[in-house]
Nucleic acid binder design. Structure first.
Lengths: 337, 337
DNA sequence: TTGTATGCGTTATCAC
DNA sequence: GTGATAACGCATACAA
């Protein structure tokens, strides 16, 4: 159907080898004349190489797999954009896979990516990663880079993360400097490594300022709006005393804010609040949410560059890249004391 | 490297033909015994078919191309999610392409998709579509479905859209029923077909209620926050009289709201506002934005199903699917008069 | 400077 | 039931 290398070989009265040579700009061992002639015919017939056939012999598809929980989570689009941009710059395309934090689905996708011979995989594991899936990935011998979600293994895996400890530490420190002493914490699901890290940052800052860690001020959420609502409710009904609430991500902060508004509790005058992520929503809620920004674009770009290096067989200077988050001060935290 | 059909043929002491047969569950012309034996070896060696080779001969990649302006635009993630879900259900994967509304980039992506032999393409054209690109797409003879952005051609192209006329009509009607008579309109970029449609809906409702169309109450925006801000500024400085502002999309409505807040103009008491799209942001701004919801998931699902039908050579009942939008009443519109 | 032949991993057409 | 063998479209080692 489509025009092939054979067609233009016939028309040019040469062998397909010669055609292949000029198309791939190989060893200039082709006379200027035939080269030009072939190029002319190529243009005339609007020849487009069949990348499938090419890939079959070169063992290179110039396609990357991107595995993540859910593109609908506002955390991801910017990262995905960065990945796609960077991939595109280096001549790669992206196959998008939503796993819904479902290990079965994740495993299936990994298999398909393997079968489609992607050159590499960027992998944001499901929230409670099954070591089985990461083992599967490793057995495939496909280069991969972990993104955002850390996975514990004996050997260090290549990955790009944001420093959750530092981020939360900054946020708590800011609360404290603003005069808050009783700071509640709505954490992510405790199986999640990022959640643990962020919790650690919270603890660290409290400890540093000799503030007590009060378990009844710490609630577990699910990184979703609903989790923030539920946790805030619990906090409120517990009648415990607190002036500030730190949320392990923005979505939960937004949920928490909704509850506060419902109860006519003024933000930030009565209760201050802060989040983590800096998703676009956080800049649009009222009051605008003070939060810890993840360097989205850099995360995606960095992970992709790393992956491409791996694909090209180059060595990595650092296997793990820990990016620094940045506190964004907006209007959801008030001075106290 | 990887285990192939040949390897398991050797181990099973059969020809590759037989192996292929049992793997593809073809014509049961294989003895139970050899079948079981082969299956056993397949499992043992953890054989995974090479889809490249498969595709090369079957001319089917089970891969779809998705071309859109920018996944970062909150309008898209849900649609993309629906597309990916549906594609996945039917055994297809998705290659994601961001064009940035850049016709050159768009054209390049189309070519790559062609070269990679995708089975079909879902195409949300750049905002000022170049007929050249759509012609390119048509020449490729790859099945495609237009999504959201209409393209004028002599022949009707398969596509899925939201009824912008109806949507805006509903919004204006609601404004009018709430007592508003002087309703400003911030439109999308006028080259855009969707923008024209939405404008038409605005006009239609005004006409129906015998309200005059005042050009000075109509500003052109760019579908972005910045455009909403700029247009709102213009509206305000023009000193014209109006009690409501209808924006052609939510992003511009959010921009307009920011300007109003800055100037301490109360929403909705002094000026009512509404948008179009129902992006997640619209439910989180303060006040929550009354808007016209696009049926995101249905758009993506419908387009994908359509595309797959096309790929399978089935005929379409309708070439163009026009989905109905739905007015979502929240808190940004107040009663007047 | 150019061509022949082989192989990539699979499906498909025959023949036995 | 089973197996050669060609073909898919291309790259490449080796010859000429």
């Amino acid at each position: 159907m489509a025009v092939t290398i054979k067609d233009i070989a016939k028309l040019a009265n040469v062998s397909i080898t010669t055609v292949s040579r000029v198309i791939n700009n190989k060893s200039d061992g082709v006379s200027q004349k035939t080269r030009e002639n072939i190029l002319r015919i190529v243009k005339e017939l609007n020849y487009q190489p069949n990348r499938l056939a090419q890939s079959l012999v070169t063992k290179k598809t110039n396609t990357l797999g991107l595995v993540l929980p859910d593109i609908t989570n506002p955390f991801f689009p910017e990262i995905v954009r960065a990945i796609e941009d960077t991939a595109n710059n280096f001549g790669y395309n992206l196959i998008l896979c939503n796993t819904d934090d479902n290990n079965k689905k994740e495993s299936l996708y990994l298999q398909v990516l393997k079968e489609k011979c992607v050159d590499g995989i960027i992998f944001t594991s499901s929230i409670n990663p099954k070591s089985q899936n990461i083992k599967q990935l490793m057995e495939y011998k496909i280069p991969f880079v972990l993104l955002d979600r850390y996975i514990d293994m004996e050997e260090q895996l290549p990955g790009v993360y944001t420093d959750g400890i530092l981020g939360m530490y900054q946020a708590v420190k800011y609360f404290i400097e603003m005069g808050h002493k009783k700071i509640a914490f709505i954490s992510g699901p405790k199986e999640s490594k990022t959640a643990k890290q962020r919790y650690l940052g919270y603890i660290k800052a409290l400890a540093e300022y000799n503030l007590p860690i009060r378990d009844f001020l710490i609630k577990e959420g699910n990184y979703k709006v609903s989790g923030g609502q539920k946790a805030m409710m619990e906090l409120l009904t517990s009648k415990e005393d607190f002036t500030a609430v730190l949320c392990a991500n923005d979505l939960m902060a937004i949920g928490a804010m909704e509850v506060l508004k419902q109860k006519n509790i003024k933000i930030p005058e009565e209760i201050s609040i802060a989040g983590f992520d800096n998703i676009s929503l956080s800049n649009v809620v009222d009051p605008k949410l003070t939060t810890v920004a993840q360097p989205y674009y850099e995360m995606g770009r960095s992970a992709t560059k790393m992956l491409i290096k791996l694909i090209e067989g180059k060595s990595l200077r650092k296997k793990e890249v820990i990016l620094k988050p940045r506190l964004i001060i907006r209007n959801s935290v008030a001075k106290r004391g």
